[in-house]
Every structure is written in C-alpha cells, then in structure tokens.
Design a protein around this nucleic acid. Sequence first.
DNA 1: TTCATAGTTCGATCCTTGTCGAAGCATCTT
DNA 2: AAGATGCTTCGACAAGGATCGAACTATGAA
Lengths: 230, 230
Amino acid sequence: MNDTLKDGPDIARIASLVGDPARANMLTALMAGAALTASELALEAGVTLPTASSHLAKLMEGGLLTVASEGRHRYYGLSSPQVAGMLEAIMGVAAGVGPKRVRPGPREPKMREARVCYDHLAGEHAVKMLEALLDGKILVRDGKDIKLGKHGATHFAAIGIDVEASGKSRRPVCRDCLDWSVRRSHLAGTLGAAILDKILSEKWARREKDSRVVTFSPRGKMEFERVFLR
Amino acid sequence: MNDTLKDGPDIARIASLVGDPARANMLTALMAGAALTASELALEAGVTLPTASSHLAKLMEGGLLTVASEGRHRYYGLSSPQVAGMLEAIMGVAAGVGPKRVRPGPREPKMREARVCYDHLAGEHAVKMLEALLDGKILVRDGKDIKLGKHGATHFAAIGIDVEASGKSRRPVCRDCLDWSVRRSHLAGTLGAAILDKILSEKWARREKDSRVVTFSPRGKMEFERVFLR
DNA sequence: TTCATAGTTCGATCCTTGTCGAAGCATCTT
DNA sequence: AAGATGCTTCGACAAGGATCGAACTATGAA
C-alpha cells in the first residue's frame, strides 16, 4: 500500500531500532566491547526480562547483534565494528546538538579522555595518536580509507604488533571512526584493536569496571606517548 | 522512573527522529545537498503537508535541520556535515555488509553548478557572481543587508536591468541567500530575480524540465561571465 | 528425579505518535 | 483590495509498539 519510494537502504528500520531508550541503553552498554547476557542487558536498560528479551529479538532480527549460547546463558554482542561506528556517529550528533545537556556526568571527562569504542581506543588520546601516525607517514589517508605507510609494517613490528597477522581477516586493518567527544577521527580496524590490546596487556592503562572508561597510569601514559605520539 | 543513567549523549532521541519512515525519506532526500521546501519534502516523504510540517518541526527541535525563510518558501537543509555523516553511517549498516551506496543522484552535480532558488539563481555561478559584484563595488555589504554601490544603478542600466523599476515594490532590491551546495551567499531580492530573468530571456541558459537545474549554453556562459564576473 | 536459574512466548493493557481535514497565518501576485 | 500559494496549527482518530505478569522451555545443580 505504501508506495514509499525507497531511494536507499532502509535507514528508518535501523534507526528506529536504536531509537527506543531501552534498546539504546543496551547498545550503549555493548559499546564497551564485552558481550553481555540478557539479564545484564535488562538491568542496564532498566526493564524487566521479558521486555529485554523482546528488544533483543528485534535487534537480532535487524542484524545489529550476534548471540553466542553458552550453557543456559546467551551472550549478546554488537554484530560488527560497523555497527559500533554507526552508534558513535549518532552519539556525535546527539552530543553536538544536545539541547538537554543536563549534566556532563561525573565520569564524562574521563570518557572524553580515553574510552573503549567496541574493540579499540577512542577519546582525545586516540585522536592524537591517529594524527601523529598520519603525521609521521606511518599511516596515510587514501581517500576515505586509511592505509599503512611505506614503513608502517616495520614500525608496528618493532613495537610488537604484527600487522600481517591481523590483516588476514576480511576486516580492514585500518579504518577511521568519528569520535563524538572530539569530533575528529580515531583509528579503528584490526590495527586499532591490536593497539588497544597492546595498551592493556602492557598495563599502560586499565579499564574501569562496568564502564567504557580507560585510565592510564602515569608511567603508562608516558610509554604510550613515547611509542605512538612521538 | 527516569533512572536512565546516561553514559553518553542522548542517542535514542536522535535515532528515533531518523527512525520514522517519513522523516527518514526527508533526510535521505536532503542528503543530496540541496535545501528543499516543505512541500517538496512532503512529496518526497509521501505524506500530506500538515504531516510533513509536524515532522520538520521535530527535526528542527532535534537540531538535525536548519531552515532559511525565503519569501513564502521555507528551505530546509541538513544542519551540518556531521548529520550527513551520521546518516551515511546508518545507511552503511542498513545496507548490510554491502558498501555504502549513497549515490549523489544523476542531476546533483548540475544542481550544484546552477539552479533556480525560488526566483533567482543559485549554485556556484551565482555565488561567484555575487562575489564579483561585491568585489567590483557594484554592490556593497551594509551589515546584514546588501546595497547598491555608487555606480550600481548605472552599471545595471547599461546591461539592461532597471533597478529603479524593480525597486518600487516593498520587496528589497538586494538580499543575500545562503547557498546550500556551496555554503556561501548568493544574490536574492528583486535584483536577483531580474538577473535570472535576463539570463533566461537572453537564452544564455534554460531551465530543465521538472527540475531546479539551470543549464548554461557554452556561449551563454561566456556572456554571463563577461557581464557579471568580470 | 526434583529444584533452581536463564531465557522466551503469550496476552492484555496502555500510551505514544503518526496521520489527515479544516482552519488560520504569512507572503506574494494581480 | 482581493485572491492565490506555501506553510503551520489544531483537533480528532487510529495504529503501532513498549511494557509487564504469568505461563512455558531449557539447561544446570542437588
């Protein structure tokens, strides 16, 4: 009946999924990168279990989530980094136009500084890092994409990151992801994920519990800057 | 009841705006870059004018759109490239794993070059023209307004445009109008309308059918540049 | 087996919101 | 001044969907 001429992809369908507060809370929680159970997500969204279950079914049908059954638990996670990127983009707009910027929130400043974006680092540190890497020609922009520079692979190998290994999947090695707090790009992709791994495994920084916030130790920050911002 | 601890910006609010099919169609149409009137957007969305008006008010309140009143027309456009980027990201997810198919539309480049804006010329040519006229002191900025320069009247008279005649109505002779494709001002007002008349009557250019596109002939473009861009 | 825990499905309720017709403003044209 | 056009506001209606309690399924523990 509806003769709506769809010019592009069904954008309304996806956006309406994100447009419900309960679902938005769930998705935001999943931005931290960890898969969560239905109960945890229900708590996070502030709804009962049946309601959460209904929402999760819709998100699954929309292709935004994947699920892994483990015993009687079902772990839900974002289906792709692309979904995470979309959520960040929406956050960027929401933060920019925020007519009701009620309160910045206690840990908001920390979020701006450094946080987890699905599986890579975001925030001011991450933005500066990408700029430094581009500046040093270790990474180079190629139109909309980001590619490894001439000495990129050897540079990362020296740090202890094997770009080749992470490049085997279909997922792009480098990808830019718009940062909602700083409004500039940071590095996503398998390389971005590998760098976050490095930061955490070297204990330069640790993740706050139940939050996306990443806190650098004084020494860790120096190391991070030495390695990536120089 | 509102115990929703907002970790970040209010993502649901923005997403729900995009989540309605009618609004999504409007936003998709505006992705082309050109500002459209409420009527055009109603047609695009497949709803009646009152409905469209209601949607546009919501999008405005959400900060996704800006509006420029031009006579009895109201031209709506995306409020920032950031919003366009967000829509692109949503399209990417909606299209599945597939690449982003944001096609500019066949006549989009032509629209950017030259188009009708209500009753005067818009697009790159129009923007350049206003700059040249200001540069030659034929027109001068007076705060927010634009006025005729010292030799303005004689200049236009030599071309065959009677500024005095067109100045009799209450409508201002000169007025600037923000160009959505170039994001700079072009000339509106009775003088802008008279110039468009001149261009069309001299057959320097013609209007495309069912479109706002204005196409210059090779010779017409030269004439236009000689008269206005010199 | 029997009980407990995690999760889904069902049915009913209730509220939000998209929708349009009619009327009201504002602006331009004649 | 009178009419036409673009757009908004108002009022009423209908449909979609978010929510929860209760019942049901599945897995693990006793």
